[in-house]
Design a protein around this nucleic acid. Sequence first.
RNA 1: GGGCGCGUGGCUCAGCUUGGAUAGAGCACCGGGUUCCUAACCCGGCGAUCGAGGGUUCAAAUCCCUCCGCGCCCGCCA
Length: 593
Amino acid sequence: MAPEGQTDPWDPLVAAVVRGLVESARNLGLELPEADVRSALNLDGGPEGDLAFPAHRLSAMARRAPPEVAQQLASGFPPSPGVRSVAATGAYVNVRVDPAVLARATLELALGRGGAYGHRPRAGGPVCVEHTSANPTGPFHVGRVRNAILGDTLARCARAAGADVTTQYYIDDMGRQAAMISWIWAKPRDEWPESVRAADEGRGSETDKPDRHFGRIYPAVSAYLKDHPDAAAEVARVVQQVESGTPPSNHRQITQQILDGMLASLGRLGVGFDEFVWESDFLRDGSVGRVLDRLRSSPHAVTEENGALAIDAAAHGLPKESTHIVVQRGDGTSLYVTRDVAYHLQKFARFERVVDVLGQDHQLHARTLDALLAEIGEPRRPEFVIYQDITVPEGGRMSTRKGSAVWLDDLLAEAVARARTEVLARREDLAESDVDRIAEAVATGAIRFHIARVAPEKPVVFRWEDALSFEGRSGPFVQYSYARAASLLRRGAADRPPYPFDPERLADPEEIALVKVVAKFPRIVAYAARSAHIQSLAGYAHELADQFNRFYHAVPVLKSDVERPSRLALVAAVRQTLGNALDLLGLVRLETM
RNA sequence: GGGCGCGUGGCUCAGCUUGGAUAGAGCACCGGGUUCCUAACCCGGCGAUCGAGGGUUCAAAUCCCUCCGCGCCCGCCA
C-alpha cells in the first residue's frame, strides 16, 4: 500500500530523482539545494523521458558545456528505487521511471482513496468565496453565468485542496431596480399601467418563473417611470424606506422570489450557495454607519458643499481621475462601495481568506474597495478573481436593454432538446425518464465545460454552435468516456474490486500513457486551486478522457486473458479519477449514456 | 486621455504562474476504421514567421519596453 499520508503517486519517485541528482552533482563538486533541483525538474518530462532536468544552469556553475554536465550527471546518478534509466540527451538529463512502480502507486492511490483521490487533507483557516451576486431583478443571461461557473468551480477546487470553504451570494436589495420590483408588485395587477400589463402577456406559461416574469415587464416599468414623475417618486420613496431600515413589508419576499427563480436555473448547472448575505442588513445593523465614522476621521476625508462625504485617496494607487471617492450622498444615504466595505469587514472577521469573483467591469470598484479598506486601517484585502465578458457576435456585452442577452434558461432548453435528439438516436432501450435525465446532464455538462475550459481573462464571444458542442473538447465527451469506463466495469462484474492487479501486466504503451495521465491528477487539482486557472482542470479532464479512449481502442479489457484483472483495475482507476474531475467541474457523472 | 484585459493554424482555445529540447488540442477540410468491451469514439493527413518591433538571456509564445488592433471601466448607479 501507498505510504500513509501520501496523496500524489509521483511524490516518492520525484523525491528519489531529486536526491539522485543532488548526489550526482555533489560528485561534480557542486552543492545544490534540493528545492532548486526540484523546481528545475520538469515533471511533464520530454521527448526522451518521464522526468527531465535541464543542465544549463549547472553548466554555468561548473564552467563546462551543458551536454558534458548532463552526461556526468547521468553517469554519476546512483541506483534509485523506481528509476529505470538515466541518460543524457544534449543538455538534458532524462529519467525514465519504472512504469510498474508508477502504475502500482497510482492505482493504489486512485482506488484506495477513491473520491478523495486528488484531494488533500483539510488545512488552513476558513475561506470565503463570494461569487455570482447578480442583482435579483431578472433571469440570468449567459454573461452572468460565467461568474457562477467560475466561482463554483473555484470553490470546489479549493475544497479539494483542503480549504474550509463557504460560498456566499451577496443580494442587492437596495438598488432602484429592487425598489421598482416591490413598487409594481405591491399594486394589484389591474392597477398596473397598461404598457406593463401588455408586457406581462404570456405569464403563466410553462417556462414562467418569477425571474423571467419580472425580466419581461422590467423594460416596460422602466419606460413608464421615465414619463411618469409621480410613479418615479413613489419608487424613490421605496429606495428611501429601504435605506432607513423600514422597507415595504413585502420587499424582501419579492426579491427572494425572483432570486429563487434565478437560483433554480443555476441549480440545474450544479451551482449552489452556502450562505446568502443581504446588503440592506449592513445598514440595519449599523455597520455602514461605523464605516462612515471611521472614514470621516480619515485625514483624506472631505465634506462637499451639499454635505456629501468623500475620500481623496490619491495615495492608494488608483488611476488618475478616480481618486475622489464619494462614500455618502449629500442627502445622507449610503453608497454601494461603502456598504461593500462593511460587508468585507464582516468577511474578514470570519474568514482567513476572502475571494471575490468579479466581472472586469467591477475592476475599478475592486480597487476602490481596496483603497477604502486601507483608509480605515484594515490591513487585509480580498483576493479578486476577475473575468472578462461574454459578448455577442454583433459586438458588445449581453444587454437586457438592447435585447442582446441570451438567457440561460433558453440556452438550457435548446441544449436539452439537442441532447435528447442525440440520446434517442443512440439508445432505443431507455425509459423516458432516463432519456430526460441523461439529456439534462449532457446539456448542462456541455454548458459548464464550455465556459470552464476558457481562461477567465479571455474575452468570449457567445456562439450557439460552440456552446452546444457535444464532441471533442467538450463536457459530453468527458461524460461519455466516464460512462464507457463504468460500462466496462459493469460488464466485467465477475471481477469485483479490489482488483488483484499486477502492475507488470500494464506494459502496453497506451496503458503506460494512461497511468501517467491518472497519476498527474493531484498535481492538476493543486495547481487549479492555487492559481484559479480552472481551465487547466477542464483541459485535464479532456486529456484523461482522450487517453482512455485511445487505450480503449488499442487493447481489449474484458476479452483479455492474464491482463484482465489489471486492466479492470486501471479502468476502475480511470473511472474514479474521471469522476472526481467531473465532480470538481460540476458535471454530472453518467453511468450510462 | 487614464486604468485593466486580450491578440497563438481558416475558426475556437490550451500552453505564459516557475523561460528550457521538433508550440499542443478541438472544430472545419481530406483519407481510413464497427462480424469484437457504447462510433458522443479511434487512426492518418492538411494547416502557425505565437499581432509588430526592440531588449534581457546560453535559451523567449512565456520576462521587460515601445507601438498597433480589439474589449471593458473611468456616476453623489449597482
